[in-house]
Design a protein around this nucleic acid. Structure first.
Lengths: 220, 220
DNA sequence: ACCTGAACACCGTTCAAGT
DNA sequence: ACCTGAACACCGTTCAAGT
């Protein structure tokens, strides 16, 4: 956290550009790695050694910057073979990668989740590939968006859940919530035996249940 | 938005308390009804006719206030008969009420979603009732928390989705995303025929799929 | 006990410089 | 074109009053 010299730069155009959209986004991701990171432009500017106003030269608003980050995230999540695997297989891999990527940038989840609009081209390209896979596999047209959005909603909700303290549901006063205490302990022991966290097993369990349910809806 | 007189009050203790936790929470919910509401203590204080510092007398921090709101939300969501109906029926009603309640306070969703910790007693009591129903119906102990958290994650993710512009997935340039454009249009037409919004049909479809999947996991 | 004013350390954003 | 300083309108929170 100890900031190196603020490196007071003189006013006026520097000899070479100090920033670029690329460089800003990179630093933004580095900043969002930290949990407590409030994700302010000021903090971002600090890590880049510039004043906050300089960022507005590349991203008009904070929102635009975050939209840019989401676009990059989409690229990081990757393809996952929607073009060569059944949608219900590919979407499992996609959802896992999506959640992992969000989990790697906990400081970003809240900012992303509250971003009013998607609409950047990378996401559109991603959705297009996914929609194509659903249709190829005969999924009913009018259910593709619901199915896709359902999975994404679950992923984002799970990522938010994962960002909360792990013993969220552990009763502070177990005798007053005996059933909850029992099932919480059982979940913890089960996860431990599998060498995973409760949030991980929860995500995996919910994801497979959801996708299984979406497949049945296809048939029925 | 036009604020009535700021009603400049003199310093010193008023004859009767102007505020109470109750009154503050009520005004907080009223404020969160508005979509654009950024949910600042300053805005809240304005509607209450006091200075922002006065709020700290009842809630130490902004976080504590929002935790209080979540507690009240839990009460509003209500019981939904976990004590007399099978978990998979009651949880559908619970999830719908949960989402409706969040939807009625769009300004609150982001604040709630980014709240680091739950842990207030109302939520605990709610979870306890739900956990009891799962156990009564023979759901495996170690899967109760995963199932419950999965539904809640889906609800919160869906509420966030519902807070985004409705034509989120509508391609800006349809020819570049023909599949997406087709399924998005199909979803819209289908929802329209049912007299509901796409987000509503999406939520309902995803919810029933998820709960169906959770029931199957119980058997298998 | 319950409010205010003053103050602090922040924000995001705009705009007029300076090179 | 690309940065800074100054400035604006905000935040949440603390603290010393005042009654």
């Amino acid at each position: 956290m100890s900031q190196a010299e603020p490196a007071r730069r003189p006013a006026g155009r520097p000899r070479g550009a100090l920033l670029s959209r690329e460089r800003i986004l990179e630093a933004a991701f580095a900043l969002s790695d930290e949990r407590g990171g409030d994700f302010t432009l000021a903090a971002l500017a600090r890590t880049l050694g510039v004043r906050p106003q300089a960022l507005h030269h590349y991203f008009a608003t904070r929102e635009e910057l975050i939209a840019g980050m989401r676009g990059r995230l989409t690229l990081r999540i990757g393809e996952h073979g929607f073009d060569r695997r059944p949608w219900h297989e590919a979407i499992l891999a996609w959802a896992r990668a999506y959640r992992d990527t969000l989990g790697r940038h906990p400081g970003l989840i809240a900012a992303l989740a509250t971003l009013p609009v998607a609409g950047e081209p990378e996401s559109m390209a991603d959705y297009e590939r996914i929609a194509a896979a659903f249709r190829r596999d005969g999924y009913p047209d009018h259910l593709v968006v619901p199915a896709l959005v359902a999975v994404e909603s679950f992923v984002i909700g799970s990522a938010l859940d994962a960002a909360t303290p792990p013993d969220n549901l552990r009763p502070t006063d177990p005798p007053r919530a005996p059933h909850l205490a029992a099932v919480e302990a059982a979940a913890r022991e089960h996860a431990e035996r599998e060498g995973r966290s409760v949030t991980e097993t929860t995500f995996e369990f919910g994801l497979t249940a959801l996708v299984a349910g979406l497949r049945r809806a296809e048939e029925g």
